[in-house]
Amino acid sequence: MIDNSSSGVLDGNAAAGLLQEIFVLDVTTAQIECAACGSTWVVGSLRLYAIQMGAILRCNHCDGVVMKAVRTPHGHWLEMTGARNLIFQV
């Protein structure tokens, strides 16, 4: 059983600043498809964890990690193995 009301959870929207350092464009308005369960969500609406250390974005349906970002002195890290597609409106 998972307790989702952890008070430290934020929205993907709160990671927009960090992500915009990497993507340049605002990826929080894009849709992302979870590779684990196939559901699709707007990145800004995903549950965001560990903002103090980076950004861990999890699927609203299955809690799988969809996107991770960390800013370090030696570079930015980005991981999206948990995402199948990222869909932007152009």
Partner: peptide
């Protein structure tokens, strides 16, 4: 409105230098 579909075959973390 065109949509841009970006497919991912990322199998390892991408290290980006600022």
């Amino acid at each position: 409105m065109r949509t841009c579909v970006t497919q991912f075959a990322v199998t390892s973390s991408m290290l980006l230098y600022s």
